[in-house]
């Protein structure tokens, strides 16, 4: 009798999603913090679009939506890590470990839930932007592209969150990582175009995959789709996801082997 990886992953994804919805205190910060950042940035820095070198955009809100989205997805990854760490702390992980299931289903299940939550995060920020006067320049197709990129990145961040949880086994440690999200994001092109960044931030941003991800998410919103940034965004999102899933599966194996 073999137990299907996909059936178990689906069941665990449903559980993780349902639990996320039942723990709104974990879900709310994913949209509240980035929304506040977005409001403050757009309210205080909207004249930035007048700076020489700033790309031609419909408005600063359009430009900043990608930053808020990337920030929200990063926070989503941390939240999934915290949920996974709590599962270890409270012993539910042991229940999964002692079940005759394909082990990777433990990682894949949570990633399934992460994908759905990421889609909602993307939809929330696009709708928020539209309500407050932003445009999606490349239309519904561009919005769909943003959704694909967002979900891909969300899965990657969620996988990294799980890897950290499996290594740290402590929700408090994951909470400690929370502020790093802001640092990593500030040294990318999420908030400002690279040509307006000073050295050495512009150099760091050049090697920061979040820059390519944010630019990829942003492109369909602020302009008609340009293949280069979108492909670079897909590549960055894919690389983050591949890296995240690999380290999560390795961390799971390590966790089970150490036991």
């Amino acid at each position: 009798m073999s137990i299907s990886l996909w059936r178990v992953s689906y069941a665990l994804a449903r559980r993780a999603l349902r639990n996320s919805l039942r723990r709104p205190q974990f879900l709310a910060p994913l949209v509240i913090f980035p929304s506040l950042f977005l409001a403050v940035n757009v309210g205080g820095l909207h004249r930035s679009t007048d700076l020489p070198g700033f790309p031609a955009v419909h408005g600063f809100l359009d430009f900043q939506l990608a930053a808020a989205l990337t920030q929200s997805l990063l926070l989503g990854g941390i939240a999934q890590g915290i949920a996974a760490a709590l599962e270890i702390e409270l012993g539910f992980f042991d229940r999964l470990a002692v079940a005759p299931i394909p082990r990777v289903a433990i990682v894949f299940g949570r990633l399934g839930a992460t994908a759905v939550i990421s889609a909602f995060q993307v939809a929330y920020f696009l709708i928020l932007g539209l309500v407050f006067g932003a445009h999606v320049a490349s239309g519904p197709g561009g919005a769909l592209l943003t959704l694909v990129l967002g979900v891909l990145a969300g899965i990657g961040f969620g996988a990294i969150g799980q890897a950290l949880a499996l290594r740290a086994r402590s929700a408090a440690t994951l909470q400690g990582i929370f502020p790093l999200v802001f640092v990593i994001l500030f040294i990318s092109t999420a908030f400002f175009p690279r040509r307006l960044l000073e050295s050495p931030i512009d150099t760091i941003a050049r090697y920061n995959p979040l820059s390519y991800l944010a630019d990829g998410i942003r492109n369909p919103i602020i302009a008609t789709v340009d293949a280069k940034p979108v492909l670079e965004g897909l590549l960055a999102g894919g690389a983050i996801t591949l890296f995240g899933v690999t380290v999560a599966v390795l961390a799971l194996r390590g966790r089970l082997r150490e036991a």
Partner: peptide, 26 residues
């Protein structure tokens, strides 16, 4: 296995947990 301190998911209902456990055991 029923481990010490009953490792249950407190956010789920009893039935949800039972049905999840059934799925985990094929």
């Amino acid at each position: 296995v029923a481990l010490q301190e009953a490792a249950l998911d407190l956010l789920m209902t009893g039935r949800e947990l039972m049905e999840l456990q059934a799925t985990l055991h094929g």
